Amino acid sequence: MTQPDPASPPPTPAADLPLYSPARVRDLLALHGLRPTKSLGQNFLIDGNILRAIAEAGGAARGVPVLEVGPGLGVLTRELAARGAQVTALEKDERLGPVLAETLAGLDVSVVWGDALDFDYAALPAGTRVIANLPYYITGVLLSRFMGAPGVLSATVLVQKEVAQRLAARPGEANYGFLSALAALHGTVRHVRDVPRGAFFPAPDVTSSVVRLDFDRSRPLPDPAFLKFVEAALHHRRKTLRNNLRLVGFEGEAISAALEAAGLRPDVRAEDVPLEDIRTLARHLGVIR
């Protein structure tokens, strides 16, 4: 039998490892009889460099109100709180209660139990910054909620790389669509960094990206009727704009007149049309004034 080298240091107990280490994560899950739930999009971050990059890019600092959606084991939450941010963590899975009570003990963090889809984002205080590893299956819906919440200044989030590309795309680019237009209507998007699958436990099936969306609150929120029109116009983005608008009930002659007024070709594809031209179409079709 091979004897251990007396000069080698003993292995570090899991409890003494950083919370984001794979061994500590596995130990916490085992201790509380938990397994990551795929239907809730539970992929826990296990890379300290990524955690610090998200907190830094998101603007977590002393006195800043921060909303985290889906804290999981509290790994990112601890990083945010350690920087002095006033953290509210919104979590749906109440099985995580004992874990968060342990990992967030002594920290200035308010845990709100409930579904992120039912939360009143409009009630968040002015200057709130969202910083979160979002559940991938509801990313688009949550981003639209953040955009529509007047108190939210920015959202720095981990999303699928494909979603990040769509958020940052511009008219004429391959990934441009309604989500791109929605982000542009509310502010700006900055790609922070890509995140490999190995930065999570368990590893997801896709590469992720950190993006920061800054919302221009000096602008009025977009007219809901215009948002609905933009969504219809870009619903089948590779089809012609004319066809998309006919699908939602606009008459052919009215569409032709609006396209001409906007200086657009009759066969222009939806994905190639700048937002200002879509706004011109909406005015000529009586959707907005």
Rank of each mutant, 00 (worst) to 15 (best):
Gly97Thr: 14
Leu17Trp: 03
Glu102Thr: 06
Val112His: 11
Val111Trp: 08
Pro98Ile: 11
Thr2Val: 14
Ala101Arg: 13
Arg265Gln: 14
Asp272Lys: 11
Asp216Arg: 01
Leu275Arg: 01
Leu213Gln: 01
Ile131Arg: 04
Leu31Gly: 04
Thr280Glu: 04
Pro18Asn: 07
Val230Met: 03
His191Arg: 09
Asp216Gln: 09
Pro9Ile: 09
Ser208Thr: 02
Tyr136His: 07
Ala15Ile: 07
Ser209Arg: 00
Met147Tyr: 08
Phe44Met: 11
Thr2Gln: 10
Ala105Gln: 10
His235Tyr: 12
Thr156Met: 10
Asp27Gln: 09
Val210Trp: 04
Val112Leu: 11
Ala203Tyr: 00
Pro202Cys: 08
Arg279Glu: 13
Met1Gln: 11
Leu17Asp: 01
Arg237Glu: 04
Lys161Ser: 02
Ser208Pro: 05
Leu281Cys: 03
Leu90Gly: 07
Pro9Gly: 08
Asn175Trp: 09
Phe226Trp: 13
Ala89Ile: 05
Pro4Tyr: 02
Ile278Leu: 12
Ala168Tyr: 07
Val99Asn: 03
Pro10Arg: 12
Gly286Tyr: 06
Leu45Ile: 13
Ala122Val: 10
Pro13Gly: 11
Val25Lys: 01
Ala155Glu: 07
Pro220Ile: 06
Tyr136Cys: 05
Glu173Ile: 02
Val25Asp: 00
Ile46Trp: 06
Val189Thr: 13
Leu28Val: 10
Arg129Gln: 13
